[in-house]
């Protein structure tokens, strides 16, 4: 690799750090943990840069490294975030069944209730603008699975935030998808 392409890669990576941080933050919640994850991603990306196809999407490649790193960390040690999410979700659903309606929460809280898979799907599609095909490829799942994750995530958010039109979504409970590290 020439010095030129090294500098090139360096600047390309630098330009994408804000996106990596935002994506990491939506996966693990805590800002410092997210930044650790981004640093780890950058090191891994640098080491394995020979395997990157220059004709392909660098951001997608980096995001894939980041989420794989996150998931393997998650499998290794259970993040406290995971437990927190579960608790919050449980509280919310208990309220729901007791009073027939639940206290509405703002977007940030509602987002935190979603599973990691759902948060990831929403961010990739809804915030980063990846296509369903790209996102499915990055997450190693079927396109249909990606679509259903996005739909469930949106439905859950609408429910928690009390978005009016959610009434039309029907009274049926949306089953809570299994978390990545659960079970």
């Amino acid at each position: 690799m020439t010095a030129g392409s090294t500098a090139d890669l360096q600047s390309q990576l630098t330009a994408l750090v804000p996106n990596l941080r935002a994506f990491a933050r939506s996966l693990c919640g805590a800002a410092d943990q997210a930044d650790d994850l981004v640093q780890e991603t950058l090191v891994k990306a640098w080491k394995s840069r020979a395997s990157f196809d220059p004709g392909s999407n660098l951001k997608a490649w980096l995001f894939t490294i980041l989420r794989n790193t996150y998931l393997s960390e998650l499998r290794k040690r259970k993040y406290e975030v995971q437990d927190h999410d579960g608790e919050l979700a449980q509280q919310l659903s208990v309220k729901d069944s007791q009073s027939g309606h639940m206290d509405l929460v703002d977007f940030t809280k509602a987002f935190a209730v979603l599973s990691a898979e759902q948060r990831e799907a929403l961010i990739l599609i809804g915030a980063e603008g990846f296509s369903y095909d790209e996102a499915a490829l990055m997450c190693g799942c079927a396109v249909g699975t990606m679509k259903s994750r996005v739909n469930r995530a949106r439905g859950k958010l609408a429910e928690l935030m009390g978005v009016d039109v959610a009434e039309d979504f029907g009274g049926e409970q949306i089953p809570r998808p299994r978390g990545i590290a659960v079970g």
Partner: peptide, 22 residues
């Protein structure tokens, strides 16, 4: 999605706002 467009609008909007903030 299975949700009406208004929900996508509001939720999508807040999602992007939050993301943009970071």
């Amino acid at each position: 999605g299975g949700l009406p467009s208004e929900a996508h609008g509001l939720i999508g909007h807040q999602l992007r706002e939050e993301y943009r903030r970071v």
